[in-house]
């Protein structure tokens, strides 16, 4: 069980790393997907640990949420690229301190 949790944490961390490191907005969104997947893995692991269905049900619904979120994210990226020409985080410079 600990191994699976470590895997989950590793995926979560790598996802976070992707968000922090990459400038491409699409890759950032993909990294967020990795993070969400890590969380879903944790749910399934605990579901297995307790032998209850709850975690799995939560996981299923969380997959739906992740998909919905990515849809909105992609829509925003498209709108952003229309305005600024490239899906680059460094192009987000209109809002400042």
């Amino acid at each position: 069980m600990s191994g699976y949790l470590a895997l989950s944490l590793a995926l979560f961390s790598i996802g976070a790393l992707g968000v922090v490191l990459r400038r491409n907005l699409l890759v950032m969104l993909i990294s967020i997907e990795v993070m969400l997947n890590a969380a879903i893995l944790a749910l399934v692991v605990f579901s297995r640990m307790y032998g209850s269905v709850d975690g799995r049900v939560m996981g299923i619904l969380a997959i739906a949420v992740a998909a919905g979120e990515v849809a909105v994210g992609l829509a925003l990226v498209i709108a952003f690229v229309r305005l600024r020409g490239r899906p680059d985080a460094t192009a987000m410079d209109l809002l400042k301190w």
Binding site: L11, S31, V34
Partner: peptide
């Protein structure tokens, strides 16, 4: 993990 690293 490898897949995730590819993403990054």
């Amino acid at each position: 993990i490898a897949g995730a690293l590819v993403v990054v």
